[in-house]
Design a binder for these strands. Structure first.
Length: 894
RNA sequence: GGGCGGCUAGCUCAGCUGGUCAGAGCGACUGGUUUACACCCAGUAGGUCGGCGGUUCGAACCCGUCGCCGCCCA
């Protein structure tokens, strides 16, 4: 006998270990099996599982378990990402907390060594948390973006793209993060709106004949100004073009140039130009051959290109000092309050500076073209489709991708410089040396580029590098292209787009995945983004502790349909925990009632209408769940399962089956019906366990095991995780049985409603009177009398000619039934009930009659719609007439 | 400034290609020792489907427009 409740705390680890021990997570060997692969979005190796991971990985697990049961060679390939900045940051912070040393004190080699130590110590955290969730990843294939194989893939890709001139080195402005002292890509820059000032500065003309006013939000940049620009057609400045101003503080003469970038409408119409510290000014500088004077160092301090008293000052201190100087010089014309957007580093949170450096770039424009086409022609599809717009928008306006980072943690760039600055890009140092020897005619000392690659550079290769590329492995041949990618919309640009580009480029035009499912973002119950600083973070592990992994999984699955946000509340999770318990108890009930699999049971051969009905409903559900999961309709699948298992199987099937099952200690009224019901219940339960398994793997696996010995052996005797997915033919659905059980359910429901509304005591057991019914209905009601008696709490079912005085009539599917409960009821309550019913019917009749009275409707609407309305009208009118009769009698009686 | 998404019962949300589409869960309220389950059972609650126009025989669902809310990109 089953315990009273399922205990996730003890059962889940045990069940997970059993799956692993059985090797259930590896794809089956069968060479004929259709491959179905998912690569995990690799979480940061130093991270821990947050609720977004829980959602994302639950959906992946649902999919992989579903496809595995459908007989595919299902591979869910797990792994982690070295996450350059994030990880380096964590370890640096640790060092600082532990004592004293900065990474620079420690030196590159020792620092990287420390990170590896940290990874060894805590890198397994998130992976173990995925296990707690029930993730059925093939851990034997686990990868890490910095492991040997993936590093080889990274080098090969870099070298190949370089030889194809799709990777190049360039000196241009980058987004510089002074906190981490590294370049970052456009995507890693966050635009934040902040309060600031527009400082209006007067620059005196060199010849002392006047001044020109420019405005800036970053005064310190004036130290690097190399021109003032005005619009060529701006009449005010026509005469000044070609002349010069003397840059205050610095004393350098700079030209007044004409450039269309200057907007006559804005401010004075003149703008200061700092080509080395502003993206727009950089363009102006290029166009006009202006000198580019860099005034900052890597830390964002003023460098030696500025006057002595500014050197070494932080940029913000310098800003203040510059403004003070202008004021002192009498050249500060105005200070205007303003709100403007300022770029910040997404990791550091500090203001990012445009900074002139040498960096490596990927020519993304070229790689993007086929990646755009792959979505256009449907080689890869987005689900939901709307996301392709976001993808196109970005891809069609893609900019060069800056891939070098001045960090130590990551893939070191395979480029070596000779003494004259010539670069040799090769996969190994040896090869670079050979190339150098050939070039120089002798051995020259080479110096490897200090920089590492953007983390996303290696993540972009994930779908093929994890399968063994550049080796020609059997996994690569079998599982590439992968089938579905499940990820969040926040990394469509960072990751999805780049995988598309690299996958297609390096895998002979083959897309990395056929389908991209974009999951929602999880928020707290108020709809706020969860963050540590807000204190509204829900820890998935804590939720697993409190409710079990199944409950959390079901909740996330059921809520996954939301367009963009999931507002998660504990209440919801609790509800689905209860759902698991409900299933547990339904199984317990069948155990108590001898429900066991029958040898050679054939659902098509079942005779009792109730059993035929549940076979049909089970079939419908199986089909609906299959269709939903095949289509990434996770929420629909969950809703379908919930409704069927609780609302149909438990509420109706089990209840209606009770009379057929009889009491365990008594001999059955109908032994054949009892046996059939026991067998059918067991069959349906087995199907339920299979259908629910992808979403709630633990409780279903446990029940599967606990019911393994009940009755005949299953065709498949292994674990549920490896069992076959139910495929039930539509022929199992019997409309006649549906109609019969439908009538019984309605008769009981409506009858209950009457009793409740009239406050008929529970203990009262009147007869149920059938006043008027078709022959078929009468037969059903007669045959099901014991069922109805039990569930409606009536003494029996009797057939009469008319509604007796004091009996309460109600209409179900055209049949008139009545409950003789005169002695219990309150006449006023009954009048109210009947009046309400009649009113509702009258409203329906009015609407329908109006529609049918519309000649255009009758003429233009499809025949079946018109017919449907006619029937509805007739039914409603008949029902109304019956109830009105009852109401009249009631009035006269009173 | 450009783009996207949302606005449906107190709350969280379903409602695909216009014709029982006005729904579910939770909450609230009422009543329950019914062959498993109180993590349960039965029942009740009436929201002009954000506003205004339009298309249509017919619109929550299509079009236009306005209003909030959120996100992405400049």
């Amino acid at each position: 006998m089953l315990e009273k409740n399922f205990d996730p705390q003890t059962a889940e680890p045990r069940l997970y270990a059993a799956w692993e021990a059985a090797g259930a997570f590896a794809p089956i060997d069968d060479p004929d099996a259709e491959p179905f692969a998912i690569v995990i979005p690799p979480p940061n190796v130093t991270g821990s599982l947050h609720i977004g991971h829980a959602l994302n990985n639950t959906l992946q697990d649902v999919l992989i378990r579903f496809e595995r049961m459908r007989g595919k060679a299902a591979l869910w390939l797990p792994g982690t990402d070295h996450a350059g900045i994030a990880t380096q940051m964590v370890v640096e912070r640790q060092l600082a907390e532990a004592g004293n040393q900065s990474r620079r004190d420690l030196g590159r080699e020792a620092f990287v060594e420390k990170i590896w130590e940290w990874k060894a110590k805590s890198g397994g955290t998130i992976v173990n948390q995925l296990r707690r969730l029930g993730a059925s990843c093939d851990w034997s294939r686990e990868r890490f973006t910095l492991d040997e194989g993936l590093s080889a893939a990274v080098r090969k890709v870099f070298v190949t793209l370089h030889k194809q001139q799709l990777i190049y080195r360039d000196k241009r402005l980058v987004n510089w993060d002074p906190h981490f002292q590294t370049a970052i890509s456009d995507l890693e820059v966050e635009q934040r709106e902040v309060d600031g000032n527009f400082w209006h500065f007067a620059y005196p003309l060199e010849d002392g004949s006047g001044e020109i006013v420019v405005a800036t939000t970053r005064p310190e940049t004036m130290l690097g100004d190399t021109a003032v620009a005005v619009h060529p057609s701006d009449e005010r400045y026509k005469g000044l073009i070609g002349r010069a101003v003397r840059l205050p503080i610095v004393g350098r003469p700079i030209p007044i140039i004409a450039d269309e970038y200057a907007d006559p409408e804005k401010g004075s119409g003149a703008v200061k130009i700092t080509p080395a510290h502003d993206f727009n000014d950089f363009m102006v500088g290029k166009r006009n051959n202006l000198p580019m004077i860099n005034i900052l160092d890597d830390f964002g301090r003023i460098n030696d290109n500025a006057p002595a008293e500014y050197r070494g000052l932080d940029r913000f201190a310098a800003r203040k000092k510059v403004v003070e100087a202008f004021e002192a010089l009498g050249l500060l014309r105005e200070v205007e309050k303003t709100r403007h957007t300022v770029p910040h580093g997404d990791r550091s949170g500090v203001v990012v500076e445009p900074y002139l450096t040498d960096q490596w770039y990927v020519n993304a424009e070229v790689l993007a073209k086929p990646a755009i086409k792959a979505i256009e022609d449907g080689s890869t599809v987005f689900v939901p489709k709307a996301w392709e717009k976001t993808y196109f928008e970005w891809m069609r306006n893609i900019q060069p991708w800056c891939i070098s980072r001045q960090l130590w943690w990551g893939h070191r760039i395979p480029a070596w410089f000779g003494p004259d600055g010539r670069v040799f890009v090769e996969e190994t140092e040896g090869e670079a040396k050979r190339q150098a020897r050939e070039h120089y005619g002798r051995d020259e000392p080479l110096r490897q580029d200090e920089d590492v690659l953007d983390t996303w550079f290696s993540s972009a290769l994930w779908p093929f590098s994890t399968l063994g590329w550049p080796e020609k492995t059997s996994d690569l041949a079998r599982f590439y292209p992968t089938h579905t990618l499940v990820t969040g919309f926040d990394i469509i640009f960072f990751w999805v787009a780049r995988m598309m580009m690299q996958g297609i480029h390096f895998m002979d035009g083959q897309v990395p995945f056929k389908r991209i499912f974009i999951n929602a973002l999880v928020r707290d119950a108020e709809g706020k983004k969860m963050s540590k600083s807000k204190g509204n973070v829900m820890d998935p592990l804590e939720l697993v502790d409190d409710y079990g992994a199944d409950a959390l999984r079901f909740t996330l699955t059921a809520m996954s349909g939301q367009a963009r946000d999931i507002k998660l509340s504990r209440q919801r999770i609790e509800g689905y925990r209860n759902f698991g318990t409900k299933l547990w108890n339904a199984t317990r009930f069948s155990q108590m009632n001898g429900c066991a699999r029958a040898e050679g049971f054939d659902p098509a051969a079942v005779k009792v209408p109730l059993n035929r009905w549940i076979v049909g409903e089970t079939t419908r559900t199986a089909q609906a769940v299959t269709a939903a999961l095949a289509d990434c309709g996770f929420d629909r699948a969950a809703d379908e399962l919930y409704r069927f298992i609780w609302r149909q199987y438990c509420d109706w099937y089990v209840e209606l089956a009770k009379p057929l099952l009889g009491k365990p200690e008594e001999p059955p009224a109908d032994a054949a019906a009892q046996a059939e019901t026991q067998a059918t219940a067991a069959w349906a339960l087995d199907v339920i366990l299979q259908l629910l398994h992808p979403v709630m793997p633990f409780v279903t696996e446990e029940l599967w095991a606990q019911t393994a010995d009940l009755g005949a052996a299953r065709a498949y005797q292994g674990q549920l995780i490896s069992a076959k997915w139910p495929e039930l033919p539509t022929s199992l659905i019997d409309p006649a049985a549906d109609a019969e059980i439908g009538l019984i359910i309605e008769a009981i429901s409506e009858g209950r409603s009457v009793r409740a509304e009239l406050n008929v005591p529970n203990s009262a057991k009147p007869a149920l009177l059938v006043v008027e019914a078709s022959e078929a209905q009468a037969k059903v009601l007669r045959d099901s009398a014991p069922l109805i008696a039990q569930l409606l709490r009536v003494s029996d079912v009797r057939f009469v000619q008319a509604v007796p005085d004091g009996a309460i009539p109600y209409v179900v599917e055209g049949a008139t039934l009545a409950l003789p409960v005169a002695e219990f009821i309150d006449l006023a309550a009954e009048r109210a009930r009947l009046t309400k019913e009649v009113g509702a019917l009258a409203g329906d009749i009015e609407r329908t009659a109006k529609k049918l009275g519309n000649a255009d409707f009758v003429a233009r609407a499809p025949e079946e719609v018109v017919e449907e309305n006619r029937e509805r009208l007739a039914e409603a009118e008949a029902a109304k007439a019956k109830l009105e009769g009852a109401l009249r009698r009631l009035v006269t009686a009173a």
